[in-house]
């Protein structure tokens, strides 16, 4: 149970060393005098320490070399199966995405507001799914999974190819 002392956000920020000095001194003095807040602080400190100590995955010895090799080759990490099976459909989807972007692009600031990278990516994905409706309705599991893989390819495509998904995208804006 938290008392009427400092807000719990300040208690956590104090534990994390993120309070200005004057506020930190005030919280420290209160915690020193208040058993309830000491218990509260102990539990919160422990939860933070445990998360910090969670196991860490270590990259394999050749990880950096693999990254450098694929970046030099300009290779995408994976290629979808359906893209290999029906390249024309995938190409049509990419072209449709570019056309839509060009049609909407000039108007979007004035009429629609700026689309986020996520919205642009969703439109590209929807277009691609529309292009592959037949496979979605009657395809095998492998074909369906291939469509999902192709969506990855659209995401990873260079902006001049996909049109809607800049390499910097929402990840780096």
């Amino acid at each position: 149970m938290h008392c009427d002392g400092p807000p719990i956000e300040d208690l956590v920020a104090w534990l994390d060393g993120e309070l200005p000095a004057a506020d930190a001194a005030r919280v420290a003095a209160h915690v020193d005098a208040c058993a309830a807040c000491r218990r509260e602080a102990d539990g919160l400190r422990r939860s933070g320490e445990l998360v910090a100590a969670l196991p860490r995955a270590t990259p394999s010895a050749d990880f950096a070399a693999r990254v450098l090799a694929s970046s030099r080759a300009g290779a995408a990490p994976r290629r979808g199966r359906l893209l290999r099976l029906v390249p024309a459909a995938a190409a049509a989807a990419a072209v449709a995405a570019v056309l839509l972007w060009r049609a909407v692009g000039p108007q979007r600031d004035a009429e629609l507001g700026v689309l986020t990278a996520s919205e642009e990516r969703d439109i590209a994905a929807d277009l691609y799914l529309l292009t592959n409706l037949d496979a979605l309705e009657s395809g095998s599991a492998d074909e369906l999974i291939g469509i999902v893989d192709d969506l990855d390819v659209l995401e990873a495509a260079e902006p001049e190819v996909a049109g809607l998904y800049a390499a910097t995208s929402g990840d780096v804006r």
Binding site: F63, R66, A156
Partner: peptide, 13 residues
Amino acid sequence: EDVAQEVFLRIHR
């Protein structure tokens, strides 16, 4: 590692 590889490729691009 698959995710990390994609991360570095995005940075590269």
